[in-house]
Simulated assay, not measured.
Amino acid sequence: MLLIKNVPFNNVVANGVATVNLPIGMSYNKIILALGGTFTKAMITNVNVKVNGKIIFQESGSRLDLINQYRGLTAAAGFLTLDFTEPRAKTMIEQYVGNINTAQSVSSLTVEVTIAGATSPTLDSYSELGPPAQLGVIAKHIPFTQAFASSGKIPMKLIDITNRGGIIKRVHFAHTGNLSQLEVKKNGIVIWDNVLAAVNSFWQGEYQKTSQANLYSYDPCADNNYANAVKTADATSLEFNPTFSAADTVTAVVEVLDVLGNM
């Protein structure tokens, strides 16, 4: 594999959207953002990765940093990784499935970073590249936000998930402190049985995952076997039912393997 410095971002300003168009041809395993000046990950209010103009990866800097730390990626103040691979997968195929192959069927690959409140920021990026390949399934990050006005067990609707053919690796529920447990049902059958946050954190630690404050990660692939991912092609229903101790607002980030045009 190669690690290269990308062409410079345009419009790196204290408040605005910095953009870089990346070269086409190689396979992108990950993109590392390098932040300088008075510019922290908390000042990144949104990151979009677009393939052929379609957003396939959308995150805030702080939330992505929590997800990366849960997955065991390196945490450092001046760096933020957009990772399209599974570095600890048990087979090479599973490790690289989902990387962005751009040799065929891709006309553009763009990264947009929304900056808010920085002082004299600098922004560079580096790409880990693999050999050229035709575009296949992509590791997408798709966020859904919902407000919950009271305590109790309340369904959370994740639009465009059921019966779409995508393969769900994880769903991260970023909350404000009141999500206490989660139930997941597929086709009416419980596949995640009202697991308390503390139990979930302990169990994930058995597989060297590191739970993060105010982030409940539903991870059927915690053991790094991605055959355990949730397949939606045969799902007539897929329910996510969190329980709250008080009102909360949740952003659920779905990590899903999917073709470009599907979701």
Rank of each mutant, 00 (worst) to 15 (best):
M1K: 05
L3F: 15
N6G: 13
V7M: 11
N11K: 02
N11P: 00
V12I: 10
V13T: 15
V13G: 01
V13I: 15
N15G: 08
G16D: 03
A18G: 10
T19W: 03
V20M: 04
S27T: 13
N29L: 04
K30C: 06
K30T: 11
I32P: 00
L33R: 02
L33N: 01
K41S: 05
A42N: 13
T45V: 11
V47S: 09
V47P: 12
N48R: 08
K50D: 11
N52R: 12
K54E: 13
I55D: 07
F57Q: 06
Q58H: 08
G61N: 12
G61F: 06
R63A: 05
R63Q: 13
L66R: 10
N68I: 03
Q69T: 10
Y70M: 05
G72W: 08
A75K: 15
A77Q: 04
L80T: 11
T81F: 08
L82E: 06
L82N: 10
L82P: 05
L82K: 06
D83H: 06
F84N: 02
F84D: 00
E86C: 03
R88C: 06
R88L: 08
R88I: 01
A89K: 03
K90P: 09
K90Q: 14
M92N: 01
M92D: 12
I93M: 02
Q95V: 04
V97R: 06
N99Y: 06
N99M: 09
T102H: 13
T102A: 06
A103N: 05
A103M: 04
Q104L: 14
V106D: 02
S108I: 02
E112D: 15
E112Y: 04
E112A: 02
V113T: 04
V113L: 08
V113C: 08
I115F: 08
I115K: 12
A116T: 15
T122Q: 04
T122C: 07
L123C: 11
Y126W: 14
S127E: 05
S127Y: 04
G130F: 01
G130R: 07
A133D: 14
L135F: 01
G136A: 07
I138C: 04
I138Y: 11
A139V: 07
K140W: 07
H141Q: 09
H141T: 13
A147I: 01
F148Q: 00
A149Y: 01
A149M: 03
A149T: 14
S151Y: 09
P155L: 07
P155K: 08
K157Y: 11
K157T: 14
I161Y: 13
R164S: 03
I167K: 15
A174Y: 13
T176L: 14
T176F: 10
G177K: 05
S180A: 12
Q181M: 06
K186P: 00
G188W: 10
I189L: 13
I189W: 07
V190G: 02
I191Q: 10
V199K: 15
N200F: 00
N200K: 11
N200E: 09
Q204E: 14
E206P: 00
Q208H: 12
S211R: 03
Q212N: 06
Q212S: 02
A213M: 10
N214L: 02
S217D: 03
C221G: 07
A222V: 05
D223E: 14
Y226W: 08
A227I: 03
A227S: 13
T232V: 04
A233N: 04
D234A: 12
E239D: 15
N241L: 14
P242L: 11
D248H: 12
D248K: 10
A252F: 08
L260I: 07
N262K: 13
